[in-house]
């Protein structure tokens, strides 16, 4: 296990205005350097709220978040340069081409023109999109859009990648490519927090997993240890159902 702490979340709580129940309730966890940390939980468990507070989209009601040793409240601009956010929405301009989208987002990180152009070509090539570099995103398939969406958060080579359901709605091939690429990134030193419903993805690529429900941390360990801990469970999905129950969630 990597030793250096990249993300340190202490007693994080978030209650939305007008709500009584907190979406995230006294949540604490640490993510270490060069690991993929999975966030698992049923609908409404607080995964997206946690990711959103980590990337400053939401202000926490209480608690402390430190990224790479910097407190989020005090070093927001520096932290923004350290993180890359891949949201579950395909946050792209569909009238722009793949290149134009990536160039726009990359420029906002202040990446030098030539370096950025080189990086865009390299990344598009890596995810099999080099043929469609100058095609408007509105003409792309769902899987292609997902891949571009992923690349848009990687252009500035972030130290920490926050992924919220990055493989939702894509075919098996695309999921496989994305998983492979994320593993490759981890091997090259990128730390990740990966939130998903896809148990298979989590089991395959995450080094450690936190299962949260009702905004609280229920369990935290490596996927293998979690499965081993519950003798009646053969997979992460079994563990998940064992811990969060089979009752439907809204």
């Amino acid at each position: 296990m990597a030793s250096k702490t990249v993300v340190d979340v202490k007693r994080l709580s978030k209650t939305y205005k007008g709500c009584v129940e907190p979406a995230v309730d006294d949540l604490s966890f640490k993510v270490f350097d060069k690991e993929i940390f999975g966030l698992l939980g049923p609908n409404g468990a607080g995964k997206t709220t946690t990711i959103s507070t980590l990337c400053s989209l939401l202000k926490p009601s209480s608690g402390i978040i430190k990224i790479d040793g910097l407190e989020l409240n005090h070093h927001l601009n520096r932290i923004k340069m350290l993180i890359g956010v891949i949201s579950q929405d395909i946050a792209l301009y569909d009238k722009l081409t793949a290149y134009e989208n990536l160039y726009y987002f990359g420029s906002l990180y202040g990446i030098e023109k030539k370096v950025l152009a080189k990086r865009i070509y390299k990344l598009l090539d890596r995810l099999g999109l080099s043929k469609n570099i100058h095609v408007q995103v509105c003409k792309f398939s769902g899987g292609m859009k997902r891949r571009i969406n992923l690349l848009a958060g990687l252009l500035h080579e972030p130290k920490l990648l926050l992924l919220d359901e990055p493989t939702v709605g894509v075919d098996v091939q695309t999921r496989n490519v994305i998983r492979e690429y994320l593993t490759e990134l981890r091997d090259h030193g990128t730390t990740m927090i990966y939130s998903s419903h896809m148990m298979e993805d989590i089991q395959l690529i995450c080094d450690r997993v936190a299962i949260i429900d009702h905004g609280r941390l229920i369990s935290e360990s490596s996927p293998g240890d979690l499965i081993a801990k519950y003798s009646n469970c053969n997979s992460l999905e079994d563990v998940f159902l064992e811990l969060t129950g089979t009752k439907l969630r809204d």
Binding site: C55, S56, L57, N77, K80, M81, I83, V85, S87, D89, I90, A91, L92, Y93, D94, F105, L108, Y109, G110, A152, G153
Partner: peptide, 15 residues
């Protein structure tokens, strides 16, 4: 931009 999530993405960026 807001519905597509672009504004949210921009908010996580140094802009």
């Amino acid at each position: 931009e807001r519905n597509d999530g672009c504004l949210a993405k921009l908010k996580t960026m140094p802009v």
